[in-house]
Structures are given as structure tokens and as C-alpha cells.
Simulated scan of single mutants.
Amino acid sequence: MNARVVSSHRIREGAHDVTDPGDEFSAALFASLRRSDQRLRARHYLSGLLAAKGRKTIRNIATLVGGAAAEQSLHHFISNSTWDWLPIRQALADHVTRVLAPRAWVVRPLFIPKAGEYSVGVERQFVPGSGQVLNGQLAFGAWAATEGTSVPVQWRLHLPESWLGNARRRRRAEIPDSVQAETPDECTTATALTALGRWEVPTRPVVLDTHVTDLGRGIRPFVDAQVPLLSRVNGRTPLIVADRAMPGYRAGAIPARHIMESVQGLRRPLEAARGPVRRTTLVAAVRVRLPRPYSGPELLLIGEWHERGKAPTALWLAAPATAPVGDLVRLTWLAQRAAQDEKQISEQVGVRDFEGRSFRGWHRHMTLASVAHAVSVLAAGADESDEQRFRALRPSA
């Protein structure tokens, strides 16, 4: 992307100057906002996410664009206005895929700790990857990922039954009637498939960087949609060895960890060809099936070891089971790319900082935080020599 498109300049609100990410970029992403005042507020909010010091609350953002009066207008813009965030996410996904050409869509959980109980979705709930039950919001994001960078383009907030089944809480948080109860597994799947199904983005493998509880139900929608899938697997997950040449064939369901430990003699070194993670790792793979009642095609269980110990450091299931193992392992490394960018970029532009209480406010903040993440990524990687490439790829306003 050309540096001039995302380079900052100054816009004015009252007596204050703020940093603006650029006219062309803003016009392309905010074209769905019909009113000029909404487009201006979106640019102000985006600029504040990029430039405000400390937590990216509406109050801190407003200090850059006019103080108390601006705070009131920005609060209304985020929490009470009528604009739809989905067209902006679609424009962002289109723009990012055109410029970055992602290799995969990484879906990973985002837990947002909260001390109170009034923000939408806040509940004591299990945090994937931590093994803890904590108080806060649980969301899932879909990231367009390459070896060098990643950008979140879609978010889905998991709403516990304590919210959806409570008419008072639901009404107070302005949760639409169309939002129905779903498990974290269903939330994970929907995060990926709603983006791939509704938006004209290229089909790429989906990497589920979370432990899916019900693998049969979790994998089936991707198989049906013919979307290649890699899903992280718990070592205790029971699987059936499908390769008659491998240990454990006809032994019934065996924990995934034990299957991989039995074939550690087949491990082969794999070196990252490029990207942020440069290392040699050891990998092995076994064709497996899920226990009944799942009746889908064979899957590929992949184990990765960083050292020559007995326990693998990562386990993944791939569907279909036909792609080269090295290519699949390199795709799993994109999950680390997204995790790193979440910490180093998304957190810096306020992805966890929204203090409002409404469902719509949360989604609007997350949308603009994703745009701020994209601005940071594209501006950091901008090169004047890319002028011709960008002009061929940029979306129309």
C-alpha cells in the first residue's frame, strides 16, 4: 500500500488538531456511512485510537478533538447512532485481502477482563487457552494472516445464556432479537464462516487457534463448505488411527497425544522458509478418524516438537488429509503471527479498551479498532515503490 494513502495529516474539530489516517483510505472504508457528520466522527474516532495516550476510551479520544462536546458526540456515534458496522468490516476485509493477499484466516479467542457485570456479555466464564474461569467478555476474531503480518476483519461476541435468557439485561444492552444462544464452539465456527459466506473474500484455509470441544460438529461445516481447515487439538482428544501401517491401527479410540508419541520415530525436521518465526521444528502426521457418530472423511493429525522430548508441543487436525504436511504446519504458524499482532498492535489501538455497555457500541468500537490496526500495519509496511501495485489493488471509494 502506498505510504501517501495512509500517511497522517491534520484535521480540525473546534480548536484542536488531530491526526487523520488519510482521505482515500477513510473514504474507501467509511463509504457506507451516509451522512458527512458520521464520516467525520468515524475519522475522529479512528484518529483517537491511533494517537490518544493511555487507554483508548471515548473520553481520552475526545481530548484530541474538542473535549466535553466532542465526548458527547462520539459517545452518541458509537453507542446510540444507527450506522451498521458490517459494511465497514466488509470494506476492510476486501481492502486487506487485495493488498496483503492473506494465506489463511486465523480464528482465535479474545478475552476482555471486566470488573463489573453491566457491560454486554460479561460473565464468569472459561477462558480458552488459560485453563481459568475469569470475569469478562469472550469474543472470537477472524484475522487475515500472512507470514509477515495479520489484520482482524471480523468479530463475534459470545453471549452466555445469563444474558440472552434475561429480558431485562438483554433490553438494557440492546441485544437484537436475531442474536440467539450459541456455544463457544458454534461462535468460533460462525466467526469464520459468516465472513467467508457473506463477503466476497477469497477462500483460504481456516486456522482455528482454539480447542474445539465437539470436533465433529466443529469440523462438519467447513467440510460441507469445502473450506480447508486446521484446528488445534487437545492431547486428551480420542481419535482412531486410520492408517493400517501406523501403531494403534484397530486399537479403537486413543488420546491424540499417545498417537503422536507412538510415532515420534517418524518425526522429520521442518524449517520455516520465511516469516517472523525462523526455526527448525520436528513434525509427524498420522491419518485418523473421529469416533462415532462423526462419519466424515479422514483427517490428518499433525504433531510438532520443538525439542526431541516425548510430548509434542502442538497438535492439529487438518481437513482434508491430503495437503503436504510441511505446508500445513507452516499455516499453523500463522496463528502465532496473529497472536503476536494482537499483543503488539491491536492492544495498542484499544481492542480491549471499550467501556460502554451496549452490544452495538461494542461492535462499533471493535470495527474501528480493527481499522486502526489495519492503518498501523499498512502504514508501517508502506513503500513508495509499491505505488503502481497499490493503484491496481485499492478498492474504489
Rank of each mutant, 00 (worst) to 15 (best):
A27P: 00
R156V: 04
L92H: 01
R250V: 01
P293V: 08
T281K: 10
R257E: 15
L33F: 05
G381R: 15
A52I: 07
D185C: 10
V120K: 03
L290P: 08
I254H: 05
A144D: 06
E147Y: 10
R289D: 09
A339C: 09
W305R: 10
S162P: 02
R364K: 03
D84V: 09
R360Q: 10
I219K: 08
Q90K: 14
A251T: 00
H16P: 00
R292I: 04
P160Q: 04
A335P: 07
V6H: 04
W163F: 00
E13H: 07
S47Y: 08
G296K: 06
P102N: 08
F359R: 00
D185L: 06
Q180G: 08
D209N: 15
H75T: 12
L50Q: 07
G303S: 05
P87V: 01
R108I: 08
Y249A: 11
A319E: 11
A101R: 13
L334P: 12
G141E: 13
A145G: 11
E304M: 13
G275Y: 06
Q154F: 11
L74A: 03
L334C: 12
H373K: 01
I78P: 09
L159E: 02
R10Y: 08
R257C: 09
L29R: 13
S162E: 05
N2T: 02
G248P: 01
D224W: 08
T188H: 04
V207E: 06
W316A: 09
A139R: 13
D177S: 12
V233G: 05
W83I: 05
A69N: 11
A181L: 15
V106R: 09
L317H: 07
A42N: 02
D383P: 01
V263D: 09
L331D: 07
I112D: 10
Q125K: 01
F77H: 02
L49A: 00
R244I: 09
E71K: 15
T82Q: 11
R217N: 14
S79N: 15
V65R: 04
T191H: 05
D327R: 15
D214S: 14
A374N: 03
A253I: 02
P176A: 11
R59K: 12
E161L: 14
A272G: 13
P87S: 02
V18P: 00
H211C: 05
P238L: 11
R124M: 04
L33M: 12
A382T: 01
Q340E: 14
M1S: 13
G197L: 08
R170Q: 06
L239E: 03
G235T: 06
V223P: 00
L270A: 06
L300E: 01
A70S: 14
A115L: 12
A93Q: 12
G326R: 12
A142W: 05
R267H: 04
F390H: 15
T19C: 09
R198S: 15
F25P: 00
